[in-house]
Amino acid sequence: MPLLLELFLRFFYVGLFSVGGGLATLPFLREMGEKTQWFTPAQLSDLVAVSESTPGPMGINMATYVGYTTAGLPGSIIAVLGEVAPAIIIIMIVSRVLLKFRSNKYVDWAFYGLRAASAGLIAVSCLSVAQLALFKTDVFAATGSFFAAVNYWALALAAVVFVFLRVFKKVHPIVFIAIGAAAGIAFHLIAQV
C-alpha cells in the first residue's frame, strides 16, 4: 500500500474510534507504533510533550507530528485529513438529527459505558508513559530488582509537577513542560560536574 494512503487510513481509524479527544488518541497511536514501527514508545512520549506545549488541539498536533516524521509535509497534511474526516462525516449527520440524538436513551446508555472504557484506556496509556519515564527497564532486566530500577530523580520530578498541577490549577501545561525541560538540563549539568 502506498505510504500516504496507509497514513490516511490509519489516522482515519484513529479519528473514528477515539472518543473524548486529545489523549484518547494515545492508546491508538501506541497500537499504530507497534504495528508499523513508524515511531518508538519513547518517541511517542516526546510527541505528547511537544503536542501539549504547542497551540492547537492535541490530537491534531500528534497526527501532524507522526505524519511529518513518517512522510514529510505531505504526510502531516494527509494524517490530519485522515484524522478529521470521520468527525466531519459523523458531525454532519449528527447535526441533522441533533434533537433525536440527544434524547435517545440508547445513545445515552452507550456513552455511559463508552466514557468509562475511554478513561480505562487513557489510564493504561498513562502507565506506559510512566514506565518509560520513571523506570529503567534495562536495569530491571540486568538486576531483577524493582527498587534498583526506579528512576528516583524522575519520580520525584513527576511528583513535584503533579503537586504543582493540583495547587495551581490555572497555570498552563506549557509552564510545567518548561519546568521539566529546565530541570532535565540542570540535572545533567550538575551530574557532569
Binding site: 487513557i122 519515564a133 513527576a158 493540583r166 519546568i179 521539566g180 525541560a181 532535565g184
Partner: peptide
Amino acid sequence: WAFDGIRPAVVALVFNAV
C-alpha cells in the same frame, strides 16, 4: 536532557488528566 525532564512532567500531566 530537556526531554529527560519533560517526560516525568508529562507523566504528571497525563495522570492529572486521568
